[in-house]
Design a protein around this nucleic acid. Sequence first.
RNA 1: UGGCCUAUAGUAUAAUGGUAGUACGACAGAUUUUGGUUCUGUUUGUCUUGGUUCGAAUCCAGGUAGGCCAACCA
Length: 553
Amino acid sequence: MSEEKSLNFIEEIVEEDLKNNKYSRIITRFPPEPNGYLHLGHASSICLNFGLTEKYGGYTNLRFDDTNPVTEETEYVESIKADVAWLGYKWENELYASDYFDTLYEYAVKLIKKELAYVDDSTSEEIATLKGTPTEPGKNSPYRDRSVEENLDLFDRMKNGEFADGAKTLRAKIDMAHPNMLMRDPVLYRIKHAHHHRTGDKWCIYPMYDFAHGQSDSIEEVTHSICTLEFVPHRELYDWLIERLEIFPSRQYEFARRNVSYSITSKRKLMQLVNEKIVDGWDDPRLTTISGMRRRGYTPESIRDFCDRIGVAKRENVVDMGLLEFCVREDLNKIALRRMAVLDPIRLVITNYPAGQTEEVLSENNPEAEDNGGTRPIPFSGELWIEREDFMEVPAKKWFRLAPGAMVRLKSAYIVKCEDFVKDDKGNITEIRCTYIPESKSGNDTSGIHVKGTIHWVSVQHAAEAEVKLYDRLFSVENPGEEEDFTSYINKNSLQVVNKVYIEPALATAKPGEKFQFIRKGYFTPDKTSTPEKLVFNRTATLRDNWAKESKK
RNA sequence: UGGCCUAUAGUAUAAUGGUAGUACGACAGAUUUUGGUUCUGUUUGUCUUGGUUCGAAUCCAGGUAGGCCAACCA
């Protein structure tokens, strides 16, 4: 019935493995290092890893790759858990590479006993020098041939804290002439007298990524260990270690990390923006961090849909930011409550509306919902705020909003005709004067008049006020990550604060998390700082605007 | 001057030796009490040169282009 969606290359591998009974169920893991907040790139990985086990049966662990105590913090652990949960995924186990430090130590001892690892006294510089280059083979370390007993003793003393940071390392004994640089006796353990966010001061030696990640996968019996392309060369070492250690054979598969235009997904660079206060924290709504997007008003559904649409492959890519916007609009269109708000107000006076009179009009909450989402009353009166840009003194071609003599529908209320307008000394228009057509009220319009334009409005005496933040892309270039000084390509207009916006009364009780469409203006959500006393709305996305395109012609 | 990975419309991704398709974008039109939504239509592509084959985006070889690898980071 429904068209079978084609499989990505990882799904093909999984289906093949399941078909051949290599596994009865699959296990994946999402392995963030707790040294920063999650971003859109992580979302891709999360959707892939969790999506796979949801689809094929099995489970996914959340495993923190916390092998470097100097950069990792509990704050990040908490934010990562919150973000994964918000995206809608449930991990089977919450695990930490540091849970395995004892086992990892045993593994290292086993390697030493098999004469496959040795303690090296070389300095960092010496190791680098002896490593050679991609085009020249390396040379053996003078400490490479120590006896098993000596290595065992030295490694034990490393663990006991007898040596200073950097004084010694444990290295795998592989091949210093190997064409793969990672196989030239990679460092397995290094000394760091540092406080670990979980193990405290128990350890002063910490395993390197290559001696922790694959081993953790294996301990958890992860069947498909999915990572990004830059780890391709690590796979040879990953397999070598698992084979020599004779442990569960997890397998690593690599896919291309997803890049999105006009955004940055490098924890180092994100950290810089945060630390230099170029943005308002990790959850600045202009950032494509998960928390930033949440604050901006993105839904988890829209992010998952985006990840699904961009797919999984192995080639370099830069996905158009426009697709992300499409995804969020598509979701918000279905769920956002329609409200009226005037961002750049100009007064409209209805000269034939009885002075002092007020009435209520009804407006649908969401025309996309089954029953229009129900209706709400909106107070109407003879003095309204309308959008300044909805009036043109000299109308453009194909203009069908307000202009002298032109008629337009006030959304959910009456048709009005512009009779006059008022200018101040400087020539700024300060007021638009209209007459309304009493028989044209929405719902029982007997006027027989059809107008092409409909505009939004807010009654002056009933209006509430709010602050609105309009966002644009944070960077002025498509690929900021490629620039040597990416901070000089910040879009100066990426944040525009509109201090005083008039909103209809129904918006006065809006709370963070709620989603609105300000009719004709875009999708908005209350900021986390919004209070009933001071409402603050973030614009999640604009609406598509065909008039803007038309008017540029 | 080494090893590894990759190459399909503007972007992303399918086609698994047999009609190059989908989505976003762009363009045109219809509908519309949001110039929104929805609907219809149009446009643009297999990096290159050879080879294998009845038939190649797909397999093979050479080239070209891009990326990754020389942290006691992950």
